[in-house]
């Protein structure tokens, strides 16, 4: 099941080999530690790049995070529940 969220979230990220990578994110006062980055891709809104990550925090939930380079803001786009 896919749940559309579209809310800003706080993310602690690292740069590994020049690549951005979310490490921990906080949403609705709960902290989530991504275990695995399943995939990442990007697109553009105007001239600003948006980088998407699908991250697995456990065996049943996948979170789609988006980093917008216009305002350096992270957003939780949607959740996939297995």
């Amino acid at each position: 099941m896919i749940e559309e969220i579209g809310e800003d979230v706080k993310v602690l990220a690292s740069f590994v080999n020049g690549k951005l990578q979310p490490v921990i994110f906080k949403w609705r006062n709960r902290t989530y530690q991504p275990l695995t980055i399943a995939s990442s891709w990007s697109d553009y809104e105007g001239q600003f790049k948006r980088v998407y990550f699908s991250v697995l925090t456990d065996q049943s939930n996948l979170y789609e995070l988006c980093f917008h380079t216009r305002n350096f803001q992270w957003c939780l786009v949607r959740i996939h529940h297995d």
């Binding site: 399943a38 995939s39 049943s60 297995d82």
Partner: peptide
């Protein structure tokens, strides 16, 4: 099955 395969890659549950 390109579109469907991309969805499966970006969401391992699929």
């Amino acid at each position: 099955a390109f579109f469907a395969s991309v969805e499966q890659i970006t969401n391992p549950f699929l």
